[in-house]
Nucleic acid binder design. Sequence first.
DNA 1: CGAAGATTTGAAGGTGATCAATTACGGTGG
DNA 2: CCACCGTAATTGATCACCTTCAAATCTTCG
Lengths: 169, 169
Amino acid sequence: MSRDGRQQIVGLQFAPDFMGRPFVENTDVEALASTMVRLCSFPVSVLEELLEETPAMERRIYRQTMAELDEARDWLFALGRKSAREKVASFLLLITTHADPDQVADEALEIELPLKRADIADFLGLTIETVSRQITNLRKAGILEVIDRNRVNIPHLDALRQAACVEED
Amino acid sequence: MSRDGRQQIVGLQFAPDFMGRPFVENTDVEALASTMVRLCSFPVSVLEELLEETPAMERRIYRQTMAELDEARDWLFALGRKSAREKVASFLLLITTHADPDQVADEALEIELPLKRADIADFLGLTIETVSRQITNLRKAGILEVIDRNRVNIPHLDALRQAACVEED
DNA sequence: CGAAGATTTGAAGGTGATCAATTACGGTGG
DNA sequence: CCACCGTAATTGATCACCTTCAAATCTTCG
């Protein structure tokens, strides 16, 4: 968040993600829970000792950090180059893939939005109004159905993928 | 780069940065040199062995990865929330701080732009024209002086810092 | 000199922001 | 159960910023 009130959410964490900066002195990360969370926390010193003793564990969080970096870079593309509609679709797609990781087929599924509109806007670099409009837009295009305030139904995942402008290999 | 031609540069590397994804199978990073570069490359397998044997080295690139993640997140804010003018100023500031890391005082300095306009645009999520206009804008505001195509002079670094964070009308 | 590429500048148009009003929802108390 | 209130979400109208399209200028190099 900048001094003048502009805010940007720079990442979403899902269980069982690790958060923290071992071996780094100066770090300012701010995290807010948007759902009920069970959190397991360690003093940095203890964690660092543990990692020193257990290379496999350090390896594991190192890999997670690389994955987060790749994900952050995907969002750089989304924020820099995608339209508002594509951003919202991409967000929904992110939620679906994290909520249900082995979702491959083009099947209907219901997803729960862990964020309210204001948070989605802060995550996508948009305003609340634009997020709302684009959800309406996607609804009218038949890509999603609004169940209630924070639940939507996706009848065809592929349609959402397309709206999000995701390339398949 | 997406199929329809939109492109986003997701990071800049400076010597002696490390690039690569040890311990990860599926990785697609594309890197292009924009200046003359001396590159030292290893087969992944050799690198992984080396890191297994040398925890200090793994620690080092792990820390760099964390730093890159923090940097990527700063850019998420820039791309999501900053105006075109602030983006261009932020880019110039990034170059100055990397080219001359211990630049603290508010002194004049000349900087060399390693990217052409098209690349700056792809990095900032803007168009070539907008980048050009904002450089003109900053020039007219006395924040920079254009020396030639890829060199500018910054008379007051603080003014640039201010332009990079908060926009004043 | 000529050609191709890069940059700047101009004018018009579109997307998303801003401002404003309305509607829907959830929680509380009567 | 319903009235009430504060917050969240939607919708509408207008505006600003950035993009798009177009053209001129500048640079580089054969």
